[in-house]
Design a binder for these strands. Structure first.
Lengths: 354, 354
DNA sequence: TTGTAGGCGTTATCAA
DNA sequence: TTGATAACGCCTACAA
C-alpha cells in the first residue's frame, strides 16, 4: 500500500509525469475508508445505504466522502453489474432537423434517470455506422437507438449483443423494433381539418415522390377526401421537391388551371411557405380565399409565415421518448417487435382559420 | 476457477434469470484464450499486437477471437488505464440551431478517433447542468465541453477534476478555456463586403439588444463604416427582436425616413427575410436598389430567400472542432486559457451581387 | 456491526 | 515465447 503523505496536494510519486491532465488523483473508496477509519467494505455499505451499518459509522463515512468529494467510479461499478448505464444513439442526420427532436425525446426519457446517451453521427454512411456501432459495443452500451435521416425503411443491423430500436426510419426486418411517424394518419388528419373548415375544392402539392413519406401523406389525404365524398382538385397530387421554389411554382400552376380552388395541402412547411408567397402575389387572401396547410410544423417557418401556417406535427419528441422507453423495456428483458406508429397532431394557426 | 462445461450455449448457472436482455453472455478474453488453448496473458498480447508472441500463436488467437466475435470490454480497460475515452458534452440548446453545428464539429473531431461523446441537454437550467455534470464525472469522462445557448458569458464551473472547454458561450472566468464566434469581426466583414459592392448608404437592423452578440456585431460594423469614411444611415442601429416581423417593420420605417438607402445589414437571417419581404412589397429591387445581408447563414432561410441571401457564417462546426481539439490538448496535459475567437466567413449569395 | 476475500475483464510486469 | 500474478475500483457473500 502506498504510504504517500497526504494533504490534498498534487501527488505524483508513483506515476510518471506524462499523465495528461494535472488534477489530483481522483479519490477512491479506499481513500474514504481510510479517512473514516473503517474498512473498504464498510465504507461501501455505508455509502450505498446498506442496513448492516451502525448509524454513527455511516455518518463518519458520509462525512469523509463529502470531505474528499468522493464520487464512485461508475466504470468499476459497471464492470461488476454488467450494465454500463449507457445507450448508444446513432443518428444519420445530425444537421438535419428531424433527428434532433427525436434525439431530444430520447435524451429526455433517459436523462432523468441513470442512463446516459453516447451520441454518434453516421451521416448516412453504412460503413461509418458499422464503425460507430462497434465502438459503442466496445464501450458496452446497454442498447442502441438508430435514428434515420428519412422515413423510408433501412436495412436491419441483424443480431447484436444488445437490444436495438429504430427510430424515424424503420428497419426492413419486421422482427426488429421500429418507431415511425404516422404519415398516412397525418395526411388524413390534414384533410379532415380542411373539410371541417368548410373547404371542398382541395389540391395537394406534395414533395419528392421518391420519399415514402410523401406518398404516405398523400395516400392518407386521398382516403380522407374519399370518405368526405370529395374529389381531389386536378385529379392527382403534384410531386416535386421539398422547396419553397417548388411550392411557388406549383401554386401558380394550380391557380392558372383551377382558379376556384379553396384549399391547398402542402407536403411540407417549406412548400407551404412558397405556396403562401405565390398566393399573396396572386392577390388571393389566406385563409379567406384559400386555406393552406403544411407538414412538419417547423416552428421557424410556420410561425413566421404570413399568415402563420397551420401544420401537421409529427410529435418527434414523443417518438424519441417512446423509442427510449421501448429500448429500456428491451434491456429489461421485454423486447417489442414490429413497427410502432406515432400519431401526428394538428398545429393550428391562422392559415386555415375556419 | 469455474468449471462450467462450455459450449457456446447461454450459460446462466451462476446468475439468476432476472438479467434483462436475453443475449448470450458476452464473450470475454478468457473465452478466447481457452478456445485458442493459450493463457489469458498471451491472448491479450496477441490481440494487442505485442511483439513477444509467436506468429502461429497470434494467428490462433486471432482466429478464436474472430470466431467468438470477441470485442474487448472497454470498461475493464478504462479501469486500468484511468481513461474512459469519453467526453461529456453538455448543451443548453439542443433544440436550438446554434448548439447543433458546434456539437457536430466536436463529434466530428472526436468521432474519427477513439473518443466517444456523452450528450446531455441541460436546457439552460443550472441545476440540471450540475446534475448532468455529476453524472458525467461519475462515468469518468476525460473532459467536458459546455455549449451555451447564446453567446453571452456564463458562470464558470470552477475547478473540476477534468478539463473543461466552453463553446459558443464563454466562461466568465478568463482562466477557463472558451471558444466563441467573432461577432465583432462578423459585423466588420459584412460592412466591408457591402462597401466592396459599392454601397455607401448603409443601415443596420439588429436584433435583441440584450444579446452581447447583437451589440458586438453592430460595433464591428460601425468600426468598418468608420474606416470606410461612411456614416450609418439613421445615425444608429435599430434594435428589436430576432424575428421576421421585426425585420419587416424596421425596414418599412427605414424606407419611409431614408428612401435613398442602398444597403441594409441585418442582425440575423430571420430579420433579413423580413427585410427582403418588406423591400419587395415596397417595390424595391434587391440587390439592384438595395443590398441586404443577414447573419448566421441559416441555410434553410438564406437559400430559399428571394433573392437568396448573402449572410455571415459563424463557422460553428469549426468552433466545435476547435473546442474538441482544445479539450483533447488539455486532457493530454496542455491546457489553454482565455477566450479563443473563431473568425466568421462570408456566405455570398444574390442579395448583394455587386 | 465490521472486516476479509474473491471476482468483474483487462493489461503489464516478471518469472519460467 | 509463454504464463502466473498483481493491479484498476468497487460490491457482495461470508467470516469474525
Amino acid at each position: 500500500m502506498n504510504e504517500h503523505a497526504d494533504g490534498g496536494r498534487p501527488n505524483r510519486s508513483a506515476k510518471p509525469a506524462d499523465e495528461g491532465f494535472q488534477g489530483r488523483r481522483t479519490t477512491t473508496l479506499s481513500d474514504v475508508a481510510r479517512l473514516a477509519g473503517v474498512s473498504i467494505a464498510t465504507a461501501s455499505k455505508a455509502l450505498n445505504g446498506r442496513a448492516q451499518v451502525r448509524a454513527e459509522t455511516r455518518a463518519k463515512v458520509m462525512a469523509a466522502a463529502e470531505q474528499l468529494s468522493f464520487s464512485p467510479n461508475g466504470l468499476a461499478r459497471s464492470l461488476l453489474t454488467g450494465r454500463s448505464g449507457t445507450v448508444g444513439l446513432v443518428t444519420h442526420d445530425l444537421e438535419g432537423r428531424f433527428s434532433i427532436p427525436t434525439l431530444m425525446g430520447a435524451e429526455d426519457a433517459f436523462g432523468s434517470g441513470k442512463v446516459s446517451v453516447l451520441l454518434c453521427d453516421a451521416r448516412g454512411d453504412a460503413i461509418r455506422e458499422q464503425h460507430h456501432i462497434q465502438a459503442l459495443l466496445g464501450r458496452r452500451v446497454d442498447g442502441l437507438i438508430i435514428v434515420g435521416a428519412r422515413p423510408d425503411p433501412r436495412p436491419s443491423l441483424g443480431n447484436l449483443p444488445v437490444p436495438v430500436v429504430y427510430a424515424y426510419a424503420p428497419s426492413e426486418n419486421p422482427q426488429d423494433c421500429s418507431l415511425v411517424s404516422d404519415n398516412v394518419g397525418g395526411g388524413r388528419l390534414a384533410v379532415e381539418h380542411l373539410v371541417a373548415c368548410g373547404r371542398s375544392r382541395i389540391a395537394i402539392i406534395s414533395g419528392d415522390s421518391s420519399y415514402g413519406a410523401a406518398n404516405d401523406r398523400v395516400a392518407g389525404a386521398l382516403d380522407a377526401l374519399d370518405e368526405a365524398g370529395l374529389l381531389l382538385v386536378g385529379g392527382q397530387a403534384l410531386f416535386g421537391a421539398w422547396t419553397e421554389e417548388w411550392g411557388r411554382g406549383a401554386t401558380r400552376g394550380l391557380l392558372a388551371k383551377h382558379p376556384d380552388i379553396d384549399a391547398i395541402l402542402c407536403g411540407s412547411d417549406q412548400i407551404a411557405r412558397g405556396c403562401l408567397d405565390a398566393l399573396r402575389e396572386a392577390g388571393r387572401d389566406v385563409p379567406g380565399d384559400v386555406a393552406v396547410m403544411g407538414h412538419d410544423n417547423w416552428e421557424i417557418l410556420a410561425s413566421n409565415a404570413r399568415p402563420p401556417l397551420t401544420s401537421i406535427d409529427m410529435n418527434l419528441e414523443e417518438l424519441g421518448r417512446r423509442a427510449a422507453a421501448r429500448l429500456f423495456e428491451a434491456i429489461e428483458g421485454h423486447p417489442a417487435h414490429g413497427v410502432e406508429t406515432i400519431p401526428c397532431r394538428l398545429a393550428l394557426r391562422s392559415s386555415t382559420a375556419s
